[in-house]
Design a protein around this nucleic acid. Sequence first.
DNA 1: CACTTGACCTGTCCGC
DNA 2: TGCGGACAGGTCAAGT
Length: 288
Amino acid sequence: MPELPEVETVRRGLETLIIGRVIRSVGVLDSPKSFPNAQGDVEEFMIHAEIRAVRRRAKVLLIDLATGYTLVIHLKMTGQLVYRGDQVFGAGHPNDSLIGELPDRSTRVMIEFTDNSWLYFNDQRKFGWVKLIPTIEVPNIDFMKKVGPEPLDADFTPEQFIMRFARRKNTNIKAALLDQTVVAGVGNIYADESLWGARISPKRKVSDVTHGEFTVLYHELRDVMNLAIEKGGSTDKNYVNAEGKRGSYMDFARVFRREGLACPRCGTTIEKIKWAGRGTHICPNCQK
DNA sequence: CACTTGACCTGTCCGC
DNA sequence: TGCGGACAGGTCAAGT
């Protein structure tokens, strides 16, 4: 579910909501699946710890504690991190909020702060996880060592982008885009959206994609991810931000989940196929 | 090593 | 309304 723009939206929300708060208690409702190393270290390194920073790398959230430990969190498909305090959030539209009373039946971990506010980790499908790791060890975990560069970094160039695909010459462009060791943070939504933007068929072999096409794809990927962050991410079913509210990128999607509708560029009916093991949305006319 | 497929879970939707 | 099957935004571990 959450890709780079969704995780970044959660990160920004949490940054304003939990930094400086101090943990009073931790409730683990689904160990060891959702919080594999919850035993032992939690008491010593989480209780009474102050939240110092909320970072993101690829689709992983990193919540740094004053004890020198970091909560490493992956939301996978259906994970949510929702903060609930005393204050009433926004007099927004009722539909803004996708979830009700917390905890609910998908709640796996609950963190209580000393000011009586709470942070809930919910995950319907239990693919996501929370791990408590020494902050200095975070760069050494397997995922961090393998994951590719951040596509939105200011110093990430089109040339670097193209070079990252050198290892995946014999697969198709969509599978390569989804490979987190090539570039970090791309998932099914923004893979389909950026390929449409660059007019490239997801079936194209990497070695057949030209330098010029890669350059366009680089810009389309960055543009679509930046737009998605601006819109607070994409809410299809489960995704919500740190306040439990939906994102609105889906209102701006060009192909994703738009099968049967007209391509906004040429009017051809958008198709949904199974490709690279995933639901894949294409305009059969303008993506070559 | 590169590549593909299935497994991990729960919930929902679609067709019969 | 009930039931089986397919499918869902992500990664791994296996297999070739």
